[in-house]
Every structure is written in structure tokens, then in C-alpha cells.
Design a protein around this nucleic acid. Structure first.
Length: 514
RNA sequence: UCCUCCUUAGCUCAGUUGGUUAGAGCACAUGACUGUUAAUCAUGGGGUCCUAGGUUCAAGCCCUAGAGGGGGAGCCA
């Protein structure tokens, strides 16, 4: 009897073992720390008082007197520093001397309630190990405010500052929120190619991709470069957009998005352009222009709200930072809302939606235009809007994000769906205060004849694009999508004025140092 | 690419009408201080005034050219 029970039990174990062991593995992974240190962030969310722990991090400042040293330590897990108390009777003085600003330390000690006013707990050190010294004479970062321009020149070190720590934690949260939003909505993440052969998007200058010897390239009979001998046996470049491939994917998977690097070789020197940036491009079968607008607005509100809920400390810091910057601006250039107020406002209010035609009317009749305060006066329907006009609409007239729709077809790309009026296309641009265009999108032209006709008008080679046109030949359906510049989103949420300060290692004309 | 402003100590910046030895705060070094919060106080070291040329008895300051950076514009996300 006992034997049979035992036998059954072992039989069960044998069968179930792979499953159980998998469960154990999962449990193990969940609780596994890869080293024994405690992250500073945990010290603010869990009670460690009385416990002996190990911290690792970088010295921000050290304050000393005869009897005691205080080290403000930061490990990047949070913007908050943690106070280390070092008694010179306990810790070797020579060792403490090496704990200069920027040095990396491993500290063993006990968490206690703080005697001082600025923090509720602190770590009384029993052992300090200097993992990496930082020669105070040479280390460029000091416990003071540095200019963003200076920090840009030492981009390899700037993550160690409060500002850039905050920016990159927020950037991460936004990137994560992008994936979460689309995943929760049943969208599929598509990796569109980085190297492409099509130069037909019309989205600007491209970077060439080649393995040919640039000093001595193979030539054809007429003297031009023979790309047949190149790696791909054709001319290739870095992608300027994943949209066209995204459309192909949406025609089978329904709703997809891309989130990848994008390259533009434009000689753009502005606070909102990069040569290498990250773009999010959802593409949806069965969506019309209005569905597209609804998705874009909902998406933007979601990711901004996600940052508000998950990056409170960092955003509060950036809010104060932005407020200080504001004081140095001229009165007429200051924004009415602070950073946090602005983010909450965007999350809680509907975007203003209007057509290009309505926008032109507003601009034409504005006092600003009548008093000739625009550099480019708005006189007739059909002109492209200048950034001063977009800013006027967003910052002065509506004072909220604006979705502009139905632009003249002449100023928009070939793939946008032509409206019945014969003059406009189902485009949409979303304009944000301080940033300008953050989203550009449209319902796509799904009608083969209309699309090929427009391509021919705009001198886009239809033969090369046979694969794109095939989606209109076989099982075509109304569909729509948009592109969102990720760095511009990060700019808006962090309040950083220059796009070069929201990407780790910016690529701009003349700059690829790090 | 165009317009415009800027470049003085490791960092942030002042420097008068062209006139003697170029300044401050922070940082750094030394010292003081019984728990600090970008600690404080005292003392000290630290300069190719972006580069090249020019004007002048004399240039950080004026002129020309170049380099680097900021802001704005275009292109766009």
C-alpha cells in the first residue's frame, strides 16, 4: 500500500518535473540579484533600518570636518543621493581622501535613522572600498551647475549628472510605455530594415551604404559607379522611414508598429533635428483618417501619463530645472505653464482638430498677420505653413496641442490618400507647444490608379516600387498610419530645449565623436 | 546652407573711452571647525584673453580672415 503510494508520487514527480523546475527557475529569476548590493532606489521604498547592506555608486559630494565625513552617493537607480556617514576612527583617512567627486565606491555599513535634517535614513559605513578613483584635478564634473553646451562636449560623462540621469530614466520609461501601449492594444512590433534600396520616400537626403572602394570604385561604360559590383548589387542607403515596409506588414498582420533608428543626411542645424534618431511608426489596416487621429492622440496621452505616473522624482527635478531656465528668458517668450502643469494639461484636454483650410483662415485674419508680425505673411491657400505659423496656432491661438488635417496635396507625400475635393489629401500633423511637429501621418492611398497617377506626377519610379504597389493590387484596404519622432516626445516630456540633450550620443552634421 | 550673437582660469562669468601687474564665484591644495546638506571660514596655487594677420606709442577691447559654440530660419520627425 505504502509502496504503491510512493510509486505513484514518484511517477507524478517524473512527469511534472520539467514543469515544476521551470516554475522554480522563474521564481529564481524573479528574486535573483546579480550582485549583493542594494540599489539606492530600494532604500527609499523599503525599510532597511538596522540592516547591514552593501551600496555601490559614484560620489557626488563629500563634506567633512574633524569628526565625521558625509558622502552623497548616487548609483543611477534614482535621482536621489544617499548619505553615507564615515567616522574617521572607523574608516582610514587616506581612503576617505580618495573618495572625491566622481569616484566610484563600494560601501558596507548599517542603515540607521538619520540625525540630520535632509534625509530620514543614512548608511553608517564600516568598510569602504574605492572601486575607481577620479582625480579631482582632472575630473570635469563638479558639484555645481554646468552648462548643457559644456556637458554635450563630455557626453561620455554627462549621464552622471542629475539632469541627464533624469532625462535618460524618463526616456526609458517613455520607450517602455510605447511598447506597452501597442502590445496592450494588440499591435505587433515589426523590425523594418535599416538598410534599404528604395530612395522613394522623399523624406530627405540619405546616407549611402556600400562596401565599394571609395578611392577606386568600379565604373560602368558610361563612367558612373557600377553598383552591380557592390555588396547588394544595387545602390543602398540607411533607412529614412520604415513606413513603406510597415504598410506591407499591416496588410497581413492588421495593426503593427515600428520603433527603430532612422537616418537623415540633411544638413540641419537646429534644436529639433538629428542625423540619427528614433521613430515610432504605427500602421493600421482598416483605419481611416479619423481613426488615425484618435489613435495618435490617445497614444500620446498614454505615454505622457505613463511618465507622469512612473517618473515623479525625475519630472519634479526637471520641472524645477525648467522653471529656473524660464527666469532667464524674456517675458514674452516664457510659457504660461510649468513643465508638470503642461504635461498634465496635455493628458487631460482634447487636442484641437482643424483642417489646413481652417488654419489658413485663422492665420490670415489674425492680428499678428494684419500687423505684419509674421516674417512670412499668410496670404493665400496652398502655401506651406512656416514654423512661426505653427507656433502661433499652438502657443498663442489655441494654447493646446493641435491636429492639422487635410493639407493641399502639392505640399505632401505621394502616398497620402486623395480627398474627394481633388485638392487636398488625408494628412495629419500634430503640433506641440515648444516642439512643433511631433507627429506626421495620413490615411494612405489604397486605390491603385490614384496612387500610380500621383507617383507619376511626382516622378516616383513605379517599377522599382512594384512591391509597394502590389499591396494595392492584391487585397487592398483603407489603412492609415503615422510617424512620431521619439526624441521630440522626450523633449516635450523632459522640457529639454535641445534635441541633442535627450539622446545619449547625438549625431548631427560634423558630430559623431562618442 | 543662410541670418545673428558669443569665445577671458578646470567650470560659470565680469572686465569702463584702447592705457600700469587681467578679476570674482565655484573647483583644487593647505589649515580651522562636534552632524554636514552644492557645508562654512581663512590662506594659497592656477591665464596661449579661440587662432592667424593687421591698425596703434600701447590691443582682452578696434579691423580682416578662419575655427568652435549658442539662438533663429529652411528641410522634417
Amino acid at each position: 500500500m505504502i509502496k504503491s503510494v510512493l510509486y505513484r508520487f514518484f511517477a507524478f514527480l517524473t512527469k511534472a518535473w520539467p514543469l515544476l523546475s521551470n516554475q522554480f527557475k522563474l521564481l529564481k529569476t524573479k528574486n535573483m540579484a546579480f550582485n549583493k548590493r542594494v540599489k539606492i532606489q530600494e532604500l527609499f521604498t523599503q525599510d532597511y533600518v538596522g540592516k547591514e547592506i552593501v551600496l555601490m555608486g559614484w560620489v557626488r559630494t563629500k563634506r567633512s570636518n574633524k569628526n565625521v565625513s558625509f558622502i552623497a552617493l548616487n548609483d543611477g537607480s534614482t535621482i536621489k543621493n544617499y548619505q553615507i556617514v564615515a567616522d574617521p576612527n572607523q574608516i582610514d583617512e587616506e581612503l576617505l581622501k580618495k573618495a572625491t567627486t566622481g569616484a566610484c565606491l563600494k560601501i558596507k555599513g548599517t542603515v540607521v535613522a538619520s540625525q540630520g535634517a535632509g534625509q530620514s535614513t543614512e548608511l553608517v559605513a564600516s568598510h569602504i572600498e574605492v572601486l575607481g578613483e577620479a582625480d579631482a584635478e582632472k575630473y570635469p564634473l563638479q558639484p555645481k551647475k554646468h552648462s548643457l553646451e559644456f556637458l554635450r562636449e563630455i557626453a561620455h560623462l554627462r549621464m552622471r549628472t542629475n539632469t541627464f540621469g533624469a532625462v535618460f530614466r524618463v526616456r526609458h520609461a517613455l520607450a517602455f510605455a510605447v511598447h506597452k501601449y501597442f502590445n496592450d492594444k494588440g499591435f505587433f512590433y515589426i523590425h523594418t530594415p535599416i538598410i534599404t534600396a528604395s530612395d522613394a520616400e522623399g523624406a530627405g537626403e540619405t546616407f549611402k551604404v556600400t562596401t565599394l572602394d571609395l578611392k577606386n570604385p568600379p565604373l560602368t561604360e558610361d563612367g558612373s559607379i557600377n553598383y552591380k559590383e557592390d555588396f547588394f548589387e544595387r545602390e543602398t542607403n540607411l533607412t529614412v522611414s520604415g513606413q513603406l515596409e510597415g504598410e506591407l506588414a499591416a496588410m497581413g498582420l492588421g495593426e503593427i508598429y515600428t520603433f527603430g533608428p532612422t537616418f537623415r543626411a540633411e544638413n540641419s542645424n537646429t534644436a529639433r533635428h538629428l542625423a540619427e534618431f528614433w521613430m515610432i511608426e504605427p500602421e493600421m489596416a482598416f483605419y481611416d483618417a479619423e481613426d488615425n487621429q484618435n489613435l495618435a492622440e490617445d497614444f500620446l496621452k498614454y505615454v505622457i501619463n505613463y511618465a507622469l505616473e512612473n517618473c515623479q522624482d525625475d519630472l519634479e527635478f526637471l520641472d524645477k530645472r525648467a522653471a529656473e531656465e524660464e527666469t532667464s528668458k524674456k517675458a514674452d517668450q516664457r510659457s504660461e505653464l510649468g513643465l508638470l502643469e503642461r504635461l498634465k494639461f496635455v493628458v487631460n484636454n482634447d487636442f484641437e482638430r482643424l483642417t489646413y483650410t481652417e488654419a489658413i483662415d485663422i492665420l490670415k485674419n489674425s492680428n499678428h498677420n494684419k500687423k505684419k508680425k509674421f516674417q512670412y505673411l499668410v496670404e493665400s491657400w496652398g502655401v506651406d505653413l512656416q514654423s512661426e505659423h505653427e507656433r502661433y496656432l499652438v502657443e498663442k491661438h489655441f494654447k493646446k496641442p493641435v491636429i492639422l488635417t487635410d493639407y493641399p496635396k502639392e505640399i505632401k507625400a505621394f502616398y497620402m490618400r486623395q480627398n474627394d475635393d481633388g485638392k487636398t489629401v488625408a494628412a495629419m500633423d500634430i503640433l506641440f507647444p515648444g516642439i512643433g511637429e511631433i507627429v506626421g501621418g495620413s490615411q494612405r492611398e489604397e486605390r491603385l490608379e490614384k496612387l500610380t497617377q500621383r507617383m507619376e506626377e511626382m516622378h516616383i519610379p513605379t517599377e522599382e516600387m512594384w512591391w509597394y504597389l502590389d499591396t494595392r493590387r492584391f487585397g487592398a484596404t483603407p489603412h492609415a498610419g503615422f510617424g512620431l519622432g521619439f526624441e521630440r516626445l522626450v523633449q516635450f516630456v523632459t522640457g529639454m530645449g535641445n534635441i541633442r540633450d535627450v539622446i545619449a550620443f547625438p549625431r548631427t552634421p560634423g558630430h559623431a565623436e562618442f
